[in-house]
């Protein structure tokens, strides 16, 4: 399995990718991640790669090739569009509809609105879960739980149970943060569950 997470620095992609890798490890698979850490975190585009598979042969490289991602988790619709070439033809995407305007775009007024990206994703991807991630995160208790809302929504696509996600969460976060993050996970999973089931086959 290959899962690509993309967003804007500060949205919590690193923790999310670690949790996915931890879940995979807990399930007995071999996992690798690669993350964007450093200068790009200051409001730049960030991408995390997570790859895992069972069996004895380890994965050689931590980077997902173009056209290689089974699941794309988009923390921001414009970033999801940027990373679409990584998605397999029959891959699925989970995307938060809330846009993050870049300061540069504000100056020039050049950036399309989030709706433009969302619309493109909607007509391009047969397997797409869209969610109002910020509202869900707010409902859970903090906008900073956006990453958990998205993970919750993606959990069934990733093949992880809610419990194994929670276990991974407990191993990585301080106890006082568990509750709001758990709520965000569950709310995200519920939203995804309520969406029309994703067709497995599509006439492409």
């Amino acid at each position: 399995m290959n899962c690509l997470l993309c967003g804007v620095g500060g949205q919590g992609t690193v923790l999310a990718s670690r949790l996915i890798a931890q879940c995979a490890l807990d399930c007995g698979a071999f996992a690798r991640t690669s993350e964007t850490i450093g200068m790009a975190q200051r409001g730049g585009s960030v991408v995390s790669h997570v790859r895992w598979r069972g069996g004895s042969i380890s994965l050689p490289s931590p980077l997902i090739p173009l056209g290689g991602a089974d699941v794309l988790i988009g923390f921001e619709p414009g970033e999801a569009v940027r990373c679409l070439p990584y998605l397999k033809r029959d891959g699925a995407a989970v995307v938060s509809v809330n846009g993050v305007t870049s300061a540069v775009a504000s100056l020039s007024g050049a950036q399309p609105s989030a709706d433009v990206y969302v619309e493109y994703l909607r007509k391009t991807l047969p397997r797409l879960i869209l969610l109002d991630g910020i509202s869900i995160a707010r409902e859970a208790g903090s906008e900073k739980t956006l990453n958990m809302a998205l993970l919750g929504a993606a959990s069934s696509l990733l093949g992880f149970s809610a419990e194994s996600m929670l276990d991974a969460l407990r191993a990585r976060l301080s106890p006082r943060l568990i509750e709001i993050n758990r709520r965000a996970l569950e709310l995200g999973a519920a939203i995804a569950g309520a969406q029309p089931s994703i067709p497995k086959e599509d006439s492409i």
Partner: peptide, 9 residues
């Protein structure tokens, strides 16, 4: 649609 231009700031 052209992806957002997002240099670090």
């Amino acid at each position: 649609p052209a992806p957002p231009i997002r240099p670090p700031v």
